[in-house]
Amino acid sequence: MDLQNFFAMGGYAFYVWTAYAICFIVLAVNLMLPIVRRKKLLRELALKQKRLG
């Protein structure tokens, strides 16, 4: 496989790669957001529990 040809996408590189980039960025953010928020919530709840008892 010729890498240069692969990235050129027959002249459609801008459209193809922008589409793939946006797709995977949106999907990645969508997955990371709830994980980060849940970890933060767990930390807060643990802290609260420690203070109370």
Partner: peptide, 28 residues
């Protein structure tokens, strides 16, 4: 995968005062 991650967050938010969450925090 994304649905389950969202559901876990939502569940924890709603049930933050439930006994099972307290047990979970203690175990960690």
């Amino acid at each position: 995968i994304a649905l389950l991650q969202r559901a876990r967050l939502e569940l924890l938010q709603r049930e933050r005062n439930a006994q099972w969450v307290k047990t979970l925090l203690k175990d960690n």
